[in-house]
Design a protein around this nucleic acid. Structure first.
Lengths: 354, 354
DNA sequence: TTGTATGCGTTATCAT
DNA sequence: ATGATAACGCATACAA
């Protein structure tokens, strides 16, 4: 607890100086001060030095809000993701942040929680606040398409990342989900497993392609797709994911349809599954092989070490950011959009190798 | 690749409407429109409806930048953390975000990378941009104290979280690091281990108290503190952490001073250590027990399951945010600062129970 | 080389 | 009930 001295109650508030203040103090005009601080060639060296020193001494910082209002440039980009504490997402954000460091852009992050209404709200807030561009990993393949297109049409470019199957026409940065899923599935089949449970998230943008790759691989190996061996978790209710996996496994067990492998379509699902199997005393990989999309930093610390499809997370963020800035800086509207697909790495470890 | 139709080159840019635009369109004055949109009692119902419908139809969104310039309220709070993709931090950010949802505040996140200069830069950027308050987990116990105090004195409240041993006088939200570390250490001793390697981060705010608790516990159990069994990792060079742990362990092994337990002082250190021990083929917990601070979501999926000191991450974020908003909203300067210490949970699992 | 004037989009005060 | 005007802090075209 603090001891309160009555005389300390009068706090000294240091007011932030404006150009006008400096001008008055120095008996100069506002524009001279403004030009001096931006090192304009119009101003004499002596005056510039005078002003700059004075500003320095008084800790002058320009008011970005006013500057933004004047110039129309916010030097801010908005980012919308479903959940910042998700392993995959936080790594992508890291990449975006690294990119922004060099380019002097500020980043405002909003969460959609995989809820279309919250996503709309996030877009509205960013629009009101003013951003120079938007990076978004959308909730679903057509979520808030009107809002996003309106944003684009009003001159604020949008770049998609991660969930690139959204219908909107713009630049997209992600991975080839179909191929990556195909390879992981084939790895399980090559390990001698064919009863593979596919666990994925409901309504999420990458799920469809990953399922396609999965099914295609089964087909190519003449394995029929069993609808029982498929589970969609509701990603917007994060705590429910674990429950639904447990329920599914118990159901399959009771039906005598226990799988001998599991394909996890997302980061959370894959790592959670491993923990659940441990709790249920199901031996990995002896009874059930596990592989899945995952960017967990410590796959080797898992029990057993987890086979993963690793995405170049930081790179996705960095590339998406750079693409966005490129569009922002280009004066002419771009109508030739490209989808950049970065490479994943399939890393087999013990969980998939019986 | 897109097929390019020449006639589509003329993109239709939808301009964002301003109050002035609406006023002109409706042949009203700007003030009437403004008041109508804020549902002022001064305006007749019919005019209000006219304006509101028109605004709705044309997707009018107020320009927050202009509003901020006018009102001085940014409705934005800044957050400075060392790394957003750190497990612990991203969970705290989640808590902050949840709090902000209800309160209609935007969040701008900046990273310090545990570098004092970058921290200063982050503070400057936020100050320029304009924020109503700042949440910060500072780099060190006295980092940028001048800047932070200047911020406070200029009327922008600062609330510390996580690393609460900073010298600045303000509200702080964290945990009792000394007690938590003491309990974890005692747990190791009770498991029969006394050669405990303490691994921590260099210059980080929580390290000192955790070390104090650790040493106090050794003292109370008449175990001398061996300076060989102490390692500081450079947190600002994140990739180096793993190397330095490996080097330390190899060194101790070569000296015949192998510890029989490890105390990890941070999230990253603790989980990384487990993986490193697995790679070095050191049996946990038989040869070396492990316990440490960690908020990893899947401690049970680790090999072996990891004993942890769990912090109430989301709560830390939420409480810090609410405290900050409380100060922002209170008209009178506060000089009676409190440090809120939330409770941790010690959860013993297999890694510490031989 | 320095100064004056205007406007960015809002809100608020003061007319009408 | 509605409108005219000023001000927030900055940048800039234009004068001097």
């Amino acid at each position: 607890m603090e001891i309160k001295f009555p005389f300390q109650d009068e706090l000294i508030m240091i007011e932030r100086k404006t150009l006008k203040d400096i001008a008055k103090d120095l008996k100069l005009s506002v524009s001279t001060v403004s030009k001096s601080l931006s090192d304009s060639y119009e101003i004499s060296e002596s005056t510039k030095k005078l002003v700059q020193d004075y500003a320095e001494k008084h800790h002058y910082v320009p008011n970005k809000v006013a500057r933004t209002l004047k110039t129309g440039k916010t030097n801010t980009i908005g980012v919308i993701v479903f959940n910042i504490s998700n392993t995959f997402i936080s790594q992508v954000l890291d990449g975006i942040h690294n990119g922004s460091q060099a380019e002097k852009y500020d980043i405002i992050i909003m969460q959609s929680r995989d809820d279309i209404k919250l996503e709309k709200h996030a877009i509205d807030v960013l629009r009101m606040r003013g951003i120079d561009g938007l990076l978004i990993s959308p909730v679903a393949f057509n979520s808030n398409i009107e809002q996003l297109e309106a944003l684009q049409n009003s001159g604020i470019p949008v770049v998609l990342f991660d969930r690139v199957n959204h219908e909107i026409k713009t630049h997209k940065v992600g991975i080839d989900n179909k191929v990556s899923a195909y390879e992981a599935t084939e790895h399980l089949i090559n390990s001698g497993r064919s009863k593979i449970l596919h666990i994925t998230g409901k309504n999420i943008g990458v799920a469809a392609d990953r399922l396609l790759g999965f099914k295609k691989c089964l087909l190519d190996h003449q394995i029929p797709f069993d609808t029982n061996l498929y589970l969609e978790c509701d990603y917007s209710k994060h705590d429910e994911i674990e429950n639904s996996i447990v329920k599914k496994l118990n159901f399959l067990k009771s039906q005598g349809k226990m799988p001998n492998a599991i394909f996890g379509a997302t980061d959370d699902i894959t790592t959670l599954t491993l923990g659940i199997l441990a709790e249920l005393n199901i031996k990995v990989p002896d009874e059930v092989c596990v592989i899945g999309f995952s960017n967990i930093r410590i796959p080797n610390s898992l029990n057993p070490s987890l086979s993963t499809v690793v995405q170049p997370t930081e790179e996705i963020g960095m590339v998406a950011f750079n693409k966005l800035v490129e569009i922002i800086k280009s004066k002419y509207p771009i109508d030739d959009f490209e989808t950049i697909e970065l490479n994943t790495k399939l890393i087999p470890r013990k969980s998939s190798m019986p």
